[in-house]
């Protein structure tokens, strides 16, 4: 086995057991899916197959594994989200019944939704902008999401919706240009860093704001 010298002895010693655990888990998960007649159960079992994949990737050890796990998680998340949407829309067509987009077990009329949104959203957005990057985008987006869900006014003009989507696309381009600067002009690394971090901040925050608008449209319907 060819192993670089930077890999610690401990990681090498537990590579084989981790690999076997991953293979066994994946085998169990896939066997369960193949014997399953219920679609929803098969969807839940894909989660187990995802765990098996992550065990095998983690067994590589060092920073390489860490760099591979994060995209793996995103792919698993997107996959489960997409399959669950397909399952639900198919069932909706089959039975002809409709169901709310974000089912909630209780009515959303708590006092915090009328008193807190301005203050909390301001703090979250300020802190998110201070953080920048993906984490900052998530924090600021959480603030926007909370504000948009809690505010009473409803009915967003279609132009605003398209505008937010356009800003998100432009921010994505800034992120890409920032990355390009790292490669074509490495001496401008600070500019590239700020372009990519601020671009992803605006992108993630605006996307979460859009989710909030969708949720509000659905909640205020009844």
């Amino acid at each position: 086995m060819i192993v670089p010298t930077v890999v610690p002895e401990f990681t090498v010693s537990i590579f084989i057991p981790a690999l076997y655990v991953g293979l066994i888990t994946g085998f169990i998960g896939l066997l369960g899916i193949s014997f399953q007649k219920n679609d929803l159960s098969a969807l839940i079992l894909t989660d187990i197959v995802g765990v098996a994949m992550l065990v095998i990737v983690a067994a590589v050890g060092t920073d390489l594994a860490e760099a591979l796990i994060l995209p793996g998680l995103v792919v698993e998340l997107a996959e489960i989200m997409a399959i669950s949407e397909i399952l639900m829309s198919r069932e909706m067509r089959k039975t002809g019944n409709n169901a709310s987009i974000f089912p909630l077990p209780f009515a959303m009329d708590m006092e915090i939704f009328s008193t807190a949104p301005n203050f909390l959203a301001l703090i979250l957005i300020a802190y998110g902008v201070f953080l920048t990057g993906f984490t900052g985008g998530a924090v600021a987006g959480g603030g926007i999401l909370f504000y948009v869900i809690a505010r009473r006014s409803r009915g967003l003009p279609i132009k605003v919706w398209e505008g937010i989507a356009g800003i998100s696309g432009v921010a994505w381009c800034i992120w890409l240009a920032g990355f390009l600067i790292f490669f074509i002009a490495p001496e401008l690394w600070l500019l590239g860093l700020f372009m990519s971090s601020c671009g992803i901040l605006i992108k993630v925050a605006s996307k979460m704001g859009l989710i909030g608008i969708m949720a509000r449209e659905d909640l205020k319907r009844e």
Binding site: L87, M88, E91, T95, N97, S100, P103
Partner: peptide, 8 residues
């Protein structure tokens, strides 16, 4: 997904 499918 479970709650929505049950609702349907």
């Amino acid at each position: 997904a479970v709650v929505r499918l049950e609702e349907m």
